[in-house]
Nucleic acid binder design. Structure first.
Lengths: 207, 207
DNA sequence: TGCGTAATGCGACGGAGGTTGCGTTTGTCC
DNA sequence: GGACAAACGCAACCTCCGTCGCATTACGCA
């Protein structure tokens, strides 16, 4: 039940293996887009992809593995934040982008599925960790740039600001289950900036 | 599959019905405390409670119904926030209390289960709505008191402040899956207060 | 081109989840 | 206390999830 092929003597990343992975991942994304995580089942992916059920269980170990790999398959690797404005504008742009990504018919359900799967699967938790480490890493340039420009205090922890910005959005989306309006985004940006400028996120010994 | 007894002509809240509900809810809480939401299954609750499987399916409709009712069964109805200090102290006290509740061996897993169930069940979503409406309602007195004392701007939206305080905590617990330290709590309190004092949460037309 | 083996296909199986019909118990009301 | 109906117990049943052993395919390499 822990899964992921037992790292056999040899690995064959060759043609067929790559084809089945692509087919399975595409089908997973399709099912997620159409019906959501609750309806996602291995057999359904097997049917649609033309890959046999047992193959999926062997290579991916279960639904959680499918979701994790589908996210890795769908993620955009070369994304960078827009730095053309001041901090506020750049953060607002990023917040809008993040919210829009959840509305995307493919990426939205997929990201949601990973968050949901993390409640039951350690592998999904790892995937979530990697995801946010990546997100925080990329977006931190918005903050470091702002520090250079004197818009924010020196020693401001970039990750803390981004987290303060994203937390209310994720909270409404996945916890309290309220709708997220543009006003909410503005409020989140203003709140994060106000706290940052007040020095709340200055590095003391935060890791 | 939608569940909840079809509202028959008559309802009997009498002795036996109440007993079975108590037994089932207690068993649900026990299983959640011991094994968590991932291991929670109707049959296991049926075994432990001595109530038959079919009865549970009929009255509760499924696992989501069990979780929702168990939360309602376990919730402390007469809780009120501590108002003995200034805003900062009161908020910090509340934040500590909230975090501690997640560490509680019974209440923690139960609340987590409801949040998890909300990813798949509309009934769980309703329960989450009710829960936060209640939480926001009770804790808003901390903010209104602070406004009266001149610690926060007039027209500050209490719910917005509480949400700004709670969001980072929930985010770390359930989304990014990072540990929550006392330093994080302080940072959350400071950030929410800084934003509130800067007027970010002043009522314009926020519902 | 041919060999060895990883990767996949295939079907069958055990088991758990969930539903249904029917008989029995137990509130509730007269 | 007796009758009616709701709530429950019981057992059978069906579907679906996940696993396993074995046959087949097609990479990788000589």
């Amino acid at each position: 039940m822990s899964g992921e092929a037992e790292n056999p003597g040899e690995i064959r990343p060759g043609g067929r293996t790559a084809r089945t992975r692509e087919s399975v991942c595409r089908s997973t994304l399709q099912v997620l887009a159409e019906s959501g995580y609750a309806e996602l089942t291995v057999e359904r992916v097997a049917e649609r992809s033309g890959v046999h059920k047992s193959t999926i269980y062997r290579r991916w170990g279960g639904i959680d593995g499918l979701v994790v790999d589908a996210l890795a398959f769908a993620v955009d690797d070369d994304w960078e934040p827009d730095l053309s404005g001041n901090v506020e504008a750049n953060l607002m742009e990023f917040a809008r982008m993040a919210l829009a990504s959840f509305a995307d018919p493919v990426y939205g359900p997929t990201h949601t599925a990973v968050v949901a799967a993390a409640f039951q699967s350690d592998r999904a938790v790892d995937a979530v960790h990697r995801f946010f480490a990546d997100r925080f890493g990329r977006t931190s340039t918005i903050i470091t740039r702002a520090i250079e420009n004197g818009e924010l205090p020196k020693n401001t922890d970039p990750e803390a600001v981004i987290r303060a910005l994203m937390a209310p959005i994720y909270f409404r989306l996945f916890i309290s289950r309220q709708s997220v309006t543009d006003v909410d985004l503005e409020q989140a940006v203003q709140a994060a900036l106000a706290a940052a400028m007040a020095g709340v996120f200055e590095n003391q010994e935060r890791r």
